[in-house]
Design a protein around this nucleic acid. Structure first.
Lengths: 214, 214
DNA sequence: ACTATGAATTCTGAATACAAAACACAGCGA
DNA sequence: TCGCTGTGTTTTGTATTCAGAATTCATAGT
């Protein structure tokens, strides 16, 4: 295997996002740069570079002289992010090759039907969901748009651990994914885009109550 | 006047973007950090922080061991960026308060009619256009979306100086703005969003030929 | 003449050092 | 008791230094 030749700041960014998924950082708390750098075993310089990147993605906030903090979560922001991703993903669907979409539709349908049950651990469910969306967007020819979606979704990661729990109506999620796949199979791209948008908005509504009032 | 208390990296970022608007940086050229830092009168640290921010916005590219370079321009990327902004701005319109939009519609119409003529210098035209779009989006309640639009538009700044010239059909631009304003005045929000989208796509098509073939 | 190799140079990536701002807290005075 | 002020500490923001990668250029070999 080729050794990792990416800049440290990127590895640090991913490590921080991965810890965020695991809920290791409480929202709203400030970051102590020296402590975190020591914990990660790197110097402050690449750490700060990673923090600046994350701030650009909205994961962190920065205040002059006061350093970085994890941006507080709020229902308002969660709604805003979901609306944005909903818009961007359906936009991406519109930028995709219809033939390719019809080609992958059966696989999308299969993945949607194989949705893990409520017993599965949260991480498995999330991975499966991400996989489905990644495959769905894999035909998008607008590369900048794909990058943008990835970046905006990073902001949603702060909400991931809040959403863990067995009450999530996975059947609804799976059914909506099936519907998107079926519409794609029938060639109704506009309808699929709308269904995808609705999937995001519905999911947001369902999860909204799990987010603490700002 | 209150003195500027923002971090250096932000001031540097804006200075670089402003120079980009003036066409002082050729696309595709790499950046010499020590030279640029000396020219700006700052050290490499905040300069690199600004460069990393700009790379996150797609203005720059970074390659391991090779530093930063201004991302090359291409018709493909220009189209991609315009498609994204078109989608985001019409999305933002949908997140706006319809009453507020109807309220500002007359001002939007006035601004559109006052569009500077072809004699005006490019900078004046651009500022006027930005002002119009800013006012249009000022009613958007999705703050994250507004930030995102600003960020994506930064990527478009690399194209600004390429688009300078007296051949630009300003009448078309002004007419399309008028149409958006009129639809807003009549309360047709969906129609206005569509017209705004078309405005971006049409503008893109018109300007596409001015961008050198990749 | 052309390619390949290797040393010298240049530049980036990362670590460290320094300066200044924010914070905490004790002492003082109204 | 409350608030202000000044000092000491902590932490960030910026500068500088160091190490290593990439590039350049000269030279040797085919």
């Amino acid at each position: 295997m080729p050794i990792d030749r990416r800049p440290l700041r990127e590895q640090i960014r991913e490590e921080l996002l991965s810890r965020l998924d695991r809920g290791e950082f409480a929202a709203g708390t400030d970051i102590n740069e020296v402590a975190l750098a020591a914990e990660l075993g790197v110097s402050r310089t690449p750490l700060r570079e990673a923090l600046i990147t994350l701030a650009g993605e909205g994961v962190l906030q920065s205040n002059q002289g006061r350093g970085f903090r994890f941006a507080p979560v709020s229902r308002k922001e969660f709604r805003e992010l979901c609306e944005i991703v909903a818009g961007l993903e359906s936009l991406a669907l519109g930028c995709s090759d219809p033939d390719y979409l019809r080609e992958i539709a059966p696989e999308l349908l299969r993945l949607a039907r194989d949705f893990p049950d409520r017993i599965a651990e949260q991480e498995v469910i999330e991975r499966h969901d991400d996989e489905w969306h990644d495959l769905l967007l894999s035909g998008c020819r607008n590369e900048r748009l794909l990058d943008l979606i990835t970046s905006v979704k990073a902001g949603l990661r702060r909400y991931a651990h809040l959403l863990a729990g067995d009450e999530t109506p996975l059947e609804r999620e799976a059914a909506e994914h099936c519907r998107v796949a079926e519409l794609l199979m029938s060639g109704d791209l506009a309808g699929a885009g709308q269904a995808l948008h609705d999937n995001w908005v519905n999911g947001m509504e369902r999860l909204m109550s799990r987010i603490p009032q700002s």
